[in-house]
Design a protein around this nucleic acid. Structure first.
Length: 423
RNA sequence: GGAGAAAUGGCAGAGUGGUCGAUUGCGGCAGUCUUGAAAACUGUUGAAGGUAACACUUCCGGGGGUUCGAAUCCCUCUUUCUCCGCCA
């Protein structure tokens, strides 16, 4: 959620920046500001009425002490009238605030000024590319055939147990999952991230604070009996650790990482992109989260970007980094880098990580602030990224490393898998 | 799941209807002293709205109520603790 003071002070800048996301902010922001004036005026009136009521109450107390009962009763009547009008104003204030809030939550984050204009993924800016596209041997197969051939992942069985998009990993397939998770967690810990193991169900308040609710409600699995949501990413519980928290400036940056399964309903996704591991309802991911000083958050973003690139390099996967254009960015992000690895048998790039700076967009809803010395609390910047999501990495590893003799495991993973070939 | 107790500022812990946003201690910050530090002493120290700055308003787990007036009384929800039951 955008900060009201920002809209108040830099409305035109906000409108210009939101135009990069192809969002016409002018009418909404103007309405928000109008409501803001209403709100302040109403609050002022209410405050002076309450002041009056407080004064009367004190006088009544004094009069009783002095034994002047008749005068006290007089004042009590006066108080009743004041109370009636203050109640009315309080209600008006509440509805103004609600209306304003309703509008504010529909406004996306203002993108960084370096974000390229554009509407579709085709307009994302390819900022970096590394690694050679592998040439596969004759008879190479897509991963969904390899997983069957080597009995690594059983999609049909998952379908029986739960439904489409819930695969069952078996034997070396399961071991490869565990290896990747441990590899990612070890690397993150070595890079200074504190490992967190959060709950994978969260309450409504958490969903709201990181922005999954109310707009993306249909994308989360909802355990209605207890009104809990299955997390779509570890970002939700980990970022919510800092909801309503004021940290000290010298604690920044805060670096957390966590492995969790992630659950996504993926309502509205069809077609060949959902084949095999490309799009699942349940998948595993290690997430990295940072809370940074506003002056440092873009340095932090670059650091995270370098970190993710390092992981892909170690896994020997060809990858590229895209700076997302305004139209392809998420609602909450100010700047996002996507990482894609090349899937050699599918002959296409697959998104495996997304690293974003949210600036104060999340922290405003979270009320996540930091304090410098005796200064006033200031909203911190939040950032997060996948490091990494497993399924598409697995797809690329299987496809790119397949040989007539079997599938080769990258060197860095061998200590974790305990085998160097899947035969 | 049953019975009882509790929820107050970063922490501990007073406060049971009237200058209580809240005594006090610890912690934090600033200063005095010191070559420096510690100790001691002095001062300061919650958040939100509002204002040019004050004023002013709101917040004592959440919500509602009683009252001229609520941290204090009532209702309700949540959470925690103790005992019992069940259990990976």
């Amino acid at each position: 959620m955008l900060q009201l003071t920002y809209i108040r002070e830099k409305k035109d800048e906000a409108i210009a920046r939101l135009a990069i996301k192809n969002f016409d902010a002018k009418p909404i922001l103007e309405q928000v500001l109008e409501l803001d004036n209403d709100r302040r005026r109403t609050q002022n009136e209410l405050d002076s009425l309450l002041n009056e009521a407080n004064t009367i109450a004190k006088q009544v107390g004094d009069l009783y002490k002095q034994g002047k009962k008749a005068e006290a009763d007089d004042l009590k009547n006066k108080s009743a009238a004041v109370k009636e009008s203050s109640n009315k104003l309080a209600e008006a204030l509440k509805s103004i605030e609600e209306e304003q809030q309703k509008l504010l939550v529909t406004v996306p984050n203002t993108p960084n000024l370096t974000v390229p204009k554009g509407k579709t993924p085709a307009e994302n800016e390819n900022v970096y590319e590394e690694g050679a596209i592998p040439k596969l041997y004759e008879g190479a197969k897509p991963h969904w055939d390899l997983t069957t051939q080597y009995d690594l992942i059983d999609f049909e069985l998952g379908n029986k147990l739960t439904g489409a998009g819930f695969p069952v990993y078996k034997g070396k397939g399961a071991r490869l999952q565990r290896a990747l998770i441990n590899f990612f967690l070890d690397r993150a810990t070595a890079a200074g991230y504190l490992e967190i193991q959060p709950p994978i169900l969260v309450n409504e308040a958490s969903g709201y604070a990181t922005g999954q609710l109310p707009d993306k409600e249909g994308q989360m699995y909802h355990a209605t009996i207890d009104n809990l949501y299955l997390i779509p990413t570890a970002e939700v519980p980990i970022t919510n650790i800092y909801r309503d928290v004021i940290v000290k400036a010298d604690q920044l940056p805060i670096k957390n990482c966590g492995y969790t399964p992630c659950f996504r309903r993926e309502a509205g996704s069809y077609g060949k992109d959902v084949r095999g591991l490309n799009r699942l309802h349940q998948f595993d991911k290690v997430e990295i989260v940072q809370i940074a000083h506003p002056d440092k958050s873009y340095e932090t973003l670059e650091e995270m970007r370098t970190y993710v690139a390092g992981l892909l390099r170690e896994l020997e996967l060809p990858f590229r980094t895209l700076k997302l254009c305004g139209g392809d960015m998420s609602f909450a992000s100010a700047l996002t880098y996507d990482f894609e690895t090349y899937s050699a048998a599918q002959e296409k790039w697959l998104e495996v990580s997304s690293v974003s700076n949210f600036e104060t967009f999340q922290s405003n809803r979270l009320k996540l602030r930091f304090k410098e010395g005796d200064g006033k609390p200031v909203l911190a910047h939040t950032l997060n990224g996948s490091a990494l999501a497993l399924p598409r990495i697995v797809a690329c590893l299987l496809e790119n490393n397949q040989t007539a003799e079997g599938i080769r495991i990258p060197k860095v993973l061998v200590p974790y898998t305990g085998f160097d070939m899947i035969k």
